[in-house]
Design a protein around this nucleic acid. Structure first.
Lengths: 213, 213, 213, 213
DNA sequence: GATGAATGAGTATTCATTCAT
DNA sequence: CATGAATGAATACTCATTCAT
């Protein structure tokens, strides 16, 4: 009876939703959520404003769907290696993977950093991902406590093995803390840097790795 | 019409400007620039919208005057110690000073972080402070190349002395780079953290210092 | 393409039109014409918006077809007893019939009351049913002058017989006028009352009848 | 300090608010609440849309302020004669007063009838005036249970005196019920009638009165 | 100087209607 | 015939800025 099958429609819808979300993400990241208008997004996505509301019930829901999508992708990506033991090479891989992911999704991270810097939004996000409070305070969103814990535990384990017996009275947990701060500082620089500093960043990653490997 | 009266007027003006800027800064930092309305600022500053336009020609100019003021204060504050040599105690003092300043002006830093994350604003700021491009990319604004250089040079000198001959083939400049990333990561956590993590922050500062002192 | 098939098609069409009109009438009556959306009607009628436009050229034409249909049904219903003479029992039957019809078509009456209260709509309806101006002003729509007259004449006749010689100087026409106002007041209460006042209404109808029988 | 005194401002505000409310009431009554746009009201009140929001926080709040105002005026008006006893002349005065008030505020009543005919609005109004549920069902809004009761009691008393001993087994309460239906029917006709039926209405009021006086 | 009333362009959102498939 | 994607004009509402007083 249908001129197009349900699947065809569904496919088209998904494709379009994805296009809208991509365009919106770019603009949110570039101009900020509030400055970006629905009209602007619609125009750049090549459609009318009205149609956008066929796919997203509001500007806010568009924002949250974007976040959910990216979070889920990230989660799926990281989920592979979960055996909890990090060799030195795996450590290096882990760090490099972290930043290659960031590079791939740089707009998302730009957006997330922006959002986390506004009280109201931060509170809303914390309600969305209540389990990840700890990391949120450190500028990350991660959807699942178990996943989060596994990373921290894995890294702690690595630091204890690596640094634990270096000097007596030395606390590897606190060293991990500083290490995470460094990653975070690098992430901040990285996310808001001009594109052409590739080389500097590569060198810096190598430095970070060689410091803790 | 005596000079005395003029002075008084001038004083009142400055006082009022300061009040407006303080109120505006708080709200910009808390709610974001776009979400904060002129009406809201005026009401909280205890005056009419019309009068505000007597002091600031636009919302944007208010924003930029706030930035300029904070930058200048920061500059004035740091300008004292410029002899270029850092003892270990001076190094500790320098770091502690850095974060006590951040604590005092936490709203300003919150705002700055927010602003720097929007392309258009970042570009505008870079036009205002063209010399400080390098540090801007790293999330800071500093108004004067010479000043900036002096800090970097001073720190470089400190790192060379401190770490330069630790191991052969070791590059203290790159160590400095990592150190700055760590500071930046800490700044980010610090600025957007809940108030009640004082103790954690104190401990972390001490850790950072003891690592490089 | 056989005539049989054409008939079947025609039947389906009519069935579907009826379904649309029923659903639309319910929603118009409950939410008001403006608040009811075409999408909503289509969804509740189990079809697409596009298909609805195959049956009705516009939302407004849907409204007017609903009115026409109900008016015609009403007409058909009342058309039976036209011999112009009302016995007392027939009078009772007439009144009870009036309100049982109202009960059956309560949504329609709700809608009609709503519509008649808006100038523009009232004018449009008056253009559609120019002959019935008099009754329209009294909150009813009746499609045909002859029909209308026949009712009024029949009732007048009844009132003259019943009340005409009660007192000297008494005007049964004016008594009829008050009687009609009472019916109208009852209709208004009835149409917009909660469902659970059945008993009250029954008693009131009995009161009205016993007053004039 | 002020260029205008607070009182001057307040006066201007009240004047303007009144103008807006009057214009809005007319349009709501004529076109219906939903069809009437804010732009339309603003244009007819001779001001910008924006200014309207300086006086009313939303279209809905405008509607409710209009209702409240009219209800209060009505209440104040009726509040005079509260001694609970109605002579025949006072009864006549009461009825005539009822309809002269309706005539003065015909737009308001037109609006009220419209509003009461939509489920959602009726429920909202019932929440606003919960005490007057009984009369609401009969198409009126009256703000205070005591006031309402006093009217019903006064009329009941009148009917008992007047009609109570006419026939044995006769119930004056039920007669009152029919009387109220008649008033309501008349109100409905009156409110939605063309202006030029003055004479007919006068005669009808006289008929109603002479029937129960 | 000081007020807040007034404006108007702009913003998210809705919805009757059209149309490609 | 049947679908629902697509449009665009309209709607309520906001807010930086101006201006009469």
């Amino acid at each position: 009876m249908s001129p197009r099958t349900t699947e065809q429609f569904e496919e088209m819808r998904e494709e379009r939703k994805a296009r809208i979300m991509n365009v919106a993400l770019e603009h949110f990241a570039k101009e900020g959520y509030h400055k970006t208008t629905i009209s602007h997004i619609a125009r750049h996505a090549g459609m009318s404003k009205g149609l956008m509301y066929n796919y997203f019930t509001s500007k806010e829901s568009l924002l949250f769907e974007i976040i959910m999508r990216s979070v889920n992708e990230m989660y799926a990506d990281f989920d592979r290696n979960k055996d909890g033991y990090l060799s030195e090479d795996e450590f290096e891989f882990f760090i490099r993977r972290l930043f290659s992911m960031m590079k791939e999704k740089i707009s998302f991270w730009r957006l997330i950093f922006q959002l986390l810097m506004q009280n109201e939004v931060r509170e809303k996000l914390q309600r969305m991902f209540p389990s990840s409070t700890v990391f949120m305070e450190q500028g990350s969103i991660i959807p699942d406590q178990a996943f989060l814990n596994s990373i921290v535990i894995t890294l702690t384990d690595y630091f204890v093995r690596k640094k634990g017996n270096e000097k007596p009275g030395y606390d590897p947990i606190r060293e991990l803390n500083l290490f995470i701060l460094m990653l975070k500082g690098f992430a901040l620089s990285y996310v808001f840097m001009d594109d052409n500093d590739e080389e500097y960043h590569e060198k810096t990653i190598t430095d970070i790795i060689s410091k803790y490997k």
